[in-house]
Design a protein around this nucleic acid. Structure first.
Length: 561
DNA sequence: AGTTTCGGCGCC
DNA sequence: AAAGGGCGCCGAAACT
């Protein structure tokens, strides 16, 4: 029995499938089926399906009630392999990969479509030209060889497998949706914002606060217009560089209090107000489109609905079905634990080998018990803080945990110099690319430091200067390796939930929510702990580092904190 | 008039 | 106290 089958939709709506053997070669004849669901349902014991695109294929399977154990997403693997090879700018489609194999013209990738509110369709439209099964398998077999050529083939295989698993999870979450009480949401909105005015204008509370701001300035000021606010403060002799909250809070002026309150509520109104509810919640579920591996670091993104930025107050609207519970699980101090695992710093590993508060332990070793300082120092090291107390604290951190700090310092230097930087499993941070018409030709070629000035950082990078690239690379190795680990965690948790009614409904960087019948909740809590242990061992090998979770079994998401 | 960028802020 | 990494979203401003 072969452990994997390839599957390729055909142009007529049918599907071709075939068993694969070692090296990704055909292990049996190609079969045809009327549609993918029939094909998969007819082979329930296939452990892994190899297909071009999970986003194309899996939602249609789920729609007919068909779940698969595992998959291998050829186009996602192509993206990761190209990145590892320092060719991140090249087209990532399976068709492009095939063209590269044959030496023919390489087709550009199709543009991505953005999500419409309430849309049920996948992010990537099915391509009009299907890749025949034999071509797909040829690309797949070549990818197997390319895994072998990476720095750590075993890790790279784990990475592509893990991210494919993440794509299954994302598709399943997109189908299940997050339980959402529109009634509770409307109640929260009314408590915060007051009555809605007809015609879509500001709700009552915002109008009142705008009046208070105007009264404080003695003239009409619109708090939602930064230029208007800056001008108003200037007339009262206060020079502002921006109207950011942290800057305004330093000012002594009667308009500050209502202005801050206005900005807070305005944000709720425009981003998670009544029109959001109208657009994104249907039949008791909020349905964002989760996209696994949507960022350079491997963190997920969502398309539409702002699912990864749900304000705390709005989380009261996330309510389990009657008789069901939400198991809300949050990884404790994930990033420093990951730093311990990837740097193998003895001191930090020992600290991270305990389940107790890591920042407290660090503070006892290096900061005389000042937990806040310890946390700032650790986060400063990970984020590349360049000034303030962070630098002083960083020195103390370096004395006690030299290998950990050296690890991120090395990454920062590599980033500044335009070298490739990788996560633990081998996800690769692309180097700078040249701007302009020849961008595709030059894409992915590492820079020498002295060449960096006229280059632009690829999309996703905030700045063009080398220091910013250094900070990005510093953060990349930690945030990205954390993403590696969470993918393994999700895969393990998904397997555990497969035997239950429990469903994964939400994932946000270091936090996962499982929706389950009340009597499964304790089993899910245990499954999360076991999945975390397994993910830690699989990702980083045998280390003392633990990855504890804080879990809460609640009916309402807001009660989890 | 339609599209892109900016400012600000939500989450991690 | 000051401002380091990643995202998405909105309306306004700035552009074509």
């Amino acid at each position: 029995m072969t452990d994997r089958w390839a599957l390729a939709p055909a142009e007529d709506g049918g599907v071709e499938i075939a068993p694969l053997g070692p090296g990704g070669l055909f292990a049996g004849p190609v079969r045809r089926a009327a549609d993918p669901a029939e094909a998969v349902r007819g082979l329930p014991d296939v452990p892994r399906w190899v297909w071009r695109s999970t986003a194309e294929t899996y939602p249609r399977l789920l729609a007919t009630g068909v779940r698969v154990e595992r998959c291998y997403d050829v186009e996602d693997a192509e993206t990761l392999l190209l990145g590892h090879e320092g060719r991140s700018g090249e087209p990532r489609s399976a068709a492009a990969a095939l063209a590269r194999l044959h030496g023919g013209p390489v087709p550009p990738d199709p543009p991505q479509r953005s999500a419409e509110p309430g849309s049920q369709s996948p992010l990537f439209e099915p391509q009009s030209v299907h890749l025949p099964l034999t071509d797909l398998v040829e690309v797949y077999a070549d990818q197997q060889r390319r895994h072998d050529a990476t720095a750590h083939p075993d890790r790279m295989r784990l990475l592509t497998a893990a991210e494919s698993a993440g794509m299954l999870v994302a598709a399943e979450m997109n189908r299940s949706g997050l339980p959402w009480s529109a009634d509770v949401h409307r109640r929260v909105l009314h408590e915060l914002l007051g009555d809605r005015y007809a015609g879509g204008g500001e709700p009552r509370r915002l109008a009142e606060l705008a009046d208070e701001v105007s009264a404080a300035f003695g003239r009409r000021v619109r708090p939602d217009l930064p230029a208007d606010v800056v001008k108003a403060f200037a007339q009262d002799g206060i020079k502002l560089k921006s109207t950011r909250r942290w800057e305004i809070e330093t000012v002594d002026h009667p308009a500050v209090k209502p202005l801050i309150e206005y900005k807070k509520l305005y944000r709720i109104w425009v981003a998670h107000g009544w029109s959001w509810l109208q657009d994104w919640v249907r039949e008791g579920r909020f349905r964002p489109e989760f996209q696994a591996g949507g960022t350079v670091t491997g963190r997920w993104v969502t398309n539409g609905g702002g699912a990864l930025q749900i304000p705390k107050v709005i989380r009261r609207a996330v309510v389990a079905d009657p008789g069901w519970r939400l198991v809300v699980a949050d990884a404790d101090q994930m990033e420093p634990r990951v730093l311990a695992a990837i740097s193998r710093d003895p001191g930090l590993m020992e600290v991270a080998g305990r389940e107790s508060d890591l920042y407290q332990s660090v503070s006892e070793r290096a900061f005389s018990g000042d937990r806040a300082q310890a946390k700032l120092a650790v986060l400063g090291a990970v984020y590349g803080q360049t000034s303030g107390d962070g630098l002083k604290n960083l020195a103390a951190l370096r004395r006690r945990f030299p290998r950990a700090v050296a690890y991120v310092d090395d990454a920062a230097r590599a980033g500044e110099e335009g070298r490739l930087v990788r996560t633990w499993l081998g996800r690769t941070c692309p180097p700078a690319v040249r701007t302009g018409d020849d961008a595709s030709e030059e894409a992915g070629i590492p820079l020498a430091e002295d060449e960096s000035e006229d280059r632009q950082w690829v999309p996703g990078y905030a700045s063009s200067n080398a220091r910013a690239r250094g900070r990005f690379a510093r953060n990349f190795v930690v945030q990205g390796s954390a993403a590696d680990w969470t993918l393994l965690l999700l895969a393990a948790l998904r397997q555990a939930c497969a035997d239950m009614a429990a469903e994964l409904v939400f994932f946000q960087h270091d936090e996962v929510i499982v929706h389950c019948p009340e009597d499964e909740a304790e089993t899910v809590v245990t499954a999360i702990r076991e999945a975390s242990d397994l993910a830690g061992r699989l990702t980083f090998g045998e280390t003392p580092v633990r990855f504890p979770f804080t879990t809460a079994v609640v009916e309402c998401y807001a009660d989890a904190k």
